[in-house]
Computed example of a mutant assay.
Amino acid sequence: MIILPAIDIKDGNCVRLFKGDFSTVQKVAADYMETAVSFENAGAEWIHMVDLDGAKEGRPVNTKIYRDVAEKTSLKVEVGGGIRNIVTIEEYLAMGISRVIIGSAALKNPKLVEDAVKQFGSEKIAVGIDSVNGMVATEGWLEGSDVNYIDLAKKMIDIGVKYFIVTDISKDGTLSGVNISQLKEMAEATKGSCSIIASGGVHTIEDIKACKALGLYGTICGKSIYKGTLNLKEAIEIGKGA
């Protein structure tokens, strides 16, 4: 299982939110490159980055930051936030981004996801499924829907999506532990037909062990690293272990 340390960017700063609420924004690190390098030094192979400004505005905002990390570190960069068209996806991949996350557009414009998978391949595209009480939320988590997260996942699998980032918004940034029941439900419903990345709520190494026990492809860690409740190097070693 891969561990993806996370950097969320707002106004050019490394921040974290509490349950996706933009009014709770808190700066967690002084410098994005310094932070990315520290992840690299801990043994991380991937980094998960979110353009919070982009998610809110529906267009890329902090592009230079992601390009910098892709060019100046050995990390494979996974980016989401504000990706609404094929041109943006193409531009991100051309600058060395390894995987692009489609979030809101997966619900509102599934044809974009289908076209992206066909054009760039399933290894380059992930769908972010963010939910509250099992129902998908969009537009930087500012809008709700009446679509169940598993129903959306199955629809995406049918059009060729392999990677899913599954976030329980009520857990995100809370350090209250991952939603194991939701992740287990997703894993069982998709029967190994996709690669699931857990997101939201990671607190201690026990969360990493629990996600690994479910056979997940990856786990994203953000606030737990910044707050010191999770040792990234230890998490990576457990993820790699047999």
Rank of each mutant, 00 (worst) to 15 (best):
M1L: 09
L4K: 01
A6N: 02
I7S: 06
I9C: 01
K10M: 14
N13V: 00
L17M: 04
K19A: 05
D21S: 08
S23R: 15
V28R: 02
V28K: 01
Y32M: 13
M33F: 13
A36G: 14
V37Q: 15
S38W: 04
W46L: 12
A55L: 06
A55K: 11
E57F: 14
G58C: 07
V61L: 05
V61R: 03
T63E: 12
Y66G: 06
K72W: 07
S74G: 11
G82M: 05
I83C: 05
V87G: 09
V87A: 14
E90K: 12
E91L: 09
L93C: 06
A94P: 00
I97M: 10
I101V: 14
A105Q: 12
A106D: 05
P110D: 04
P110Q: 10
L112D: 02
L112N: 05
A116V: 05
A116S: 15
Q119N: 12
F120E: 12
F120I: 06
S122L: 03
K124D: 13
G128E: 04
I129C: 08
V132C: 09
M135A: 13
V136D: 02
A137Y: 14
T138W: 07
E139S: 15
L142H: 09
L142K: 14
E143N: 14
G144N: 15
G144W: 03
D146P: 05
D146E: 14
V147E: 00
N148E: 15
D151C: 03
K155A: 15
M156E: 11
D158N: 13
G160H: 08
T167A: 13
D172K: 11
T174F: 02
T174D: 11
L175K: 08
L175Y: 04
G177T: 10
V178P: 07
N179M: 01
S181E: 15
Q182V: 05
L183T: 07
M186Y: 13
S193P: 01
S199G: 10
G201D: 05
H203V: 01
I205A: 10
K209N: 15
A213C: 04
G215N: 06
I220M: 05
K223E: 08
G228H: 03
T229R: 04
T229H: 00
E237I: 09
E237D: 15
